[in-house]
Amino acid sequence: MTEGRAARPTLPPLATTTRMFARSLGWSPDQLTAAFRPAIRDDLPALLAFRQRTGWDDDAYLRWRYGLDTDGRDEPGTLWLLRDDTGVLAVIGREAQRIHHAGRTLDGQLLMDIQLRPDLEGGGGGVWLNQMMMAKADVTLAVGANAHSIGLVKRMFAALPQRSYRVLPLDSAEMLRQHGLGTFAVRVGAPVLDAGWSLVHRAAQRRSRSGIDVVEVAQVPTADIEALRAVLPPQVACVMPSPEHLQWRLFDNPRARYDLMVAYRAGVCVGYMAVRNVAADGTGKAGLHLLDWKTAAGGADAALMALLQAAVARARKERCSRVFTTVLDEQAAPLLKRLGFLGRESPSLVAGVYSAVPLPGNGGQGRWQITDLSFDSDGIY
């Protein structure tokens, strides 16, 4: 991950994409740029009609995610839109992301929720929306993509290594059934797998006794999280929210409330991990989602292993069927493997960066840690 690409992908000039997209709308370039603005509370009915979501508390989610109740004042997220007398034409969202690397804290952002009215697709709107947002931060991240956006991400962002889905099955019988094995094979194979995973965990525990205590907390410990930021591994670029931002992200979300586990050694915070029990799957059991973690540079492996073991112990106690996450993290990969996590690749798990300053994968040295904290999946799984 230390190899650098060109500092910026080659993009058409913003003036060119502005003219193209304005032409597709029948507007002038000045009309287009003047109409692009943050959404406010009065836009909510039109936004809900435009998104046409089902099964989510979308009204509450939009108010929370994009600060519509405060018209975006001092909120971590902002939704930018274009609309005319007929309704909303296009939207793109951003969440502020403090990027920590080599002792610096950079002004970053995550782009998400990009959507164009169907008849406007193909007119250059997707490129234009991204370019307009890229000017609003030093660093812009793209994390994940669907069939409509993956080409745009690959074109506009310097590619980072692929993230991977990691899962620790805790219900071997159900895992085997999902892979098409019959009743007899499940009856024979599941106890063998369960015994194997039990041995793996006992071996990992013996190898990682470190004097680290992991406790669950009811709110973000502000002083501890600020102190942790100062001792993060300098060669790793990662998203490190402020304590206030982390509190908002973990505990105020109307779709998904997370729990926070904090690791201490001799009373000093050496890491944290955010987790959430998700809805029951086909087994009737919940899964445990690992959303995010950070660890101090000194003894980072020991701190992360303690947090992972605490998460697995919680999942077993609560009879979860699996523990899972999606991650780009070279430090975590061997520890997850040691605990028995299985890896799975997917084309949708892309990650990219567009940056005005050198960063890993974008003309700078080092590596990235990207967790599901930088993926707008709240409440989906």
Rank of each mutant, 00 (worst) to 15 (best):
E3W: 03
G4P: 12
R8K: 13
T10R: 05
P12I: 00
T17A: 00
S28N: 05
T33R: 15
F36A: 06
I40L: 05
L44F: 07
P45H: 13
R51V: 08
T54F: 03
W56E: 15
D57K: 05
D59Y: 01
Y61P: 04
D69E: 15
D74T: 03
P76H: 04
T78N: 03
L82S: 08
V88D: 00
V88L: 08
V91Y: 00
R94I: 08
E95N: 15
Q97L: 09
G108V: 02
M112F: 14
L116Y: 04
R117K: 14
G125L: 08
G126M: 00
V127N: 00
N130I: 05
N130A: 09
M132N: 08
M133F: 01
D138F: 01
V139M: 08
V143Y: 11
G151I: 12
Y165P: 01
V167F: 02
L168W: 01
L168K: 01
D171I: 02
M175Y: 05
L176G: 13
G180K: 02
T183C: 02
V186A: 06
V192I: 15
S198M: 04
A204Y: 05
R209G: 06
I212C: 03
I212S: 05
D213G: 02
E216W: 07
V217M: 06
I225M: 13
A227S: 12
L232G: 06
M240V: 11
M240K: 11
P241N: 06
E244F: 04
H245F: 06
D252A: 15
Y258S: 14
Y258A: 13
L260V: 14
A263F: 07
A263S: 07
V270H: 06
N277Q: 12
G282N: 10
K285T: 02
A286N: 13
A286P: 00
L288W: 09
W293P: 01
A297V: 07
A297K: 11
A297E: 12
D301T: 10
A303M: 10
M305Q: 14
A306M: 10
L307E: 07
L307C: 09
A313R: 15
A332E: 02
R338T: 07
L339V: 00
L342W: 09
E345V: 03
S348C: 04
S348H: 12
G352V: 01
W368D: 09
W368T: 11
W368G: 12
D372C: 12
D372S: 15
D372H: 08
L373R: 06
S377I: 05
D378L: 10
I380G: 02
I380M: 14
Y381K: 06
